[in-house]
């Protein structure tokens, strides 16, 4: 090719300026759109809320609709073993053995693979990110890409996460996973895009028996506060000092 140095420089400059301007424009569009979608803008004031979640294990029937709804709502891949919420089944056999399982995170429900006469006690336990008040995942993130919002939700900044997976190691509940598409950590957001619009998280809405409840801890009349006032509740692994905001009714000692 026959290009003079002058032409080459001119062309090069155009490419560089074009690329820079292009990225800047795209970036501004992306930031604007994600800001309006995720951050509390408009009427929603994140200072006015503090979210909490209650799981009534006595009601759960293990249908797995919650886990299904979650994957649909949040584009969590169905063909990968990654879950923002799942249901565990605990079965104490007559010989004393405890069997725990959660096949495919309960998305397809459960199969009765042990005859009923061999089972002494059985129950289901829905699991989800505890959105801890003292979240170890936030503590260990080396760049601050995961954070707690003012309304008490632990989120991941996908544009900032470096993908070191330290938070996945740091979560005692196995609530985090690696998003193979975004190449970042990922987790339950309590459907932040829904709750900031006054809707319920998808899993809560999908539950046919009301085993999952969601509400505002700052509102004394919320369903969450009513339950916390009346019921005897517990949280998962309280000894770790993580201060979960997912409260359990009827938590068995086998559940970790």
């Amino acid at each position: 090719m026959d290009i003079s140095r002058r032409e080459f420089t001119k062309f090069g400059c155009r490419v560089i300026i074009g690329a820079a301007a292009g990225t800047a424009i795209i970036e501004s569009i992306v930031t604007n759109s994600s800001a309006s979608e995720n951050s509390p803008a408009g009427e929603y004031d994140w200072n006015e809320h503090y979210w909490g979640y209650v799981v009534d294990t006595r009601k759960c029937i293990g249908c797995g609709r919650c886990a299904n709804a979650c994957k649909l709502e949040n584009d969590v891949p169905f063909d990968e073993p990654v879950y923002r919420t799942w249901v565990e089944r605990y079965r104490t056999l007559k010989d004393g053995e405890v069997k725990i399982d959660s096949p495919n995170g309960s998305i397809d429900g459960f199969i009765d693979d042990i005859p009923a006469e061999d089972i002494k006690k059985a129950f289901y336990v829905p699991k989800i990110c505890n959105h801890c008040d003292n979240p170890p995942c936030v503590q260990v993130c080396p760049v601050g890409a995961t954070y707690e919002t003012r309304d008490g939700v632990v989120l991941v900044d996908y544009d900032y996460c470096i993908g070191c997976r330290y938070c996945i190691q740091g979560c005692p509940y196995g609530a985090r996973y690696f998003n193979s598409e975004k190449k970042t950590a990922d987790k339950c957001t309590w459907c932040y895009h829904r709750i900031t619009k006054g809707l319920l998280p998808a899993c809560v809405q999908a539950c046919p028996v009301g085993a999952r409840k969601f509400g505002d801890l700052k509102d004394p009349d919320s369903i969450i506060n009513k339950i916390l006032d009346e019921e005897r509740i517990n949280v998962l692994k309280p000894d770790l000092g993580t201060k979960p905001k997912v409260y359990y009714i009827g938590l068995d000692r086998e559940v970790r």
Partner: peptide
């Protein structure tokens, strides 16, 4: 063996 949390199926490190 036994029960692992569903998200633990993949070794991260």
């Amino acid at each position: 063996w036994g029960y692992i949390y569903p998200n633990e199926a993949e070794i991260q490190w």
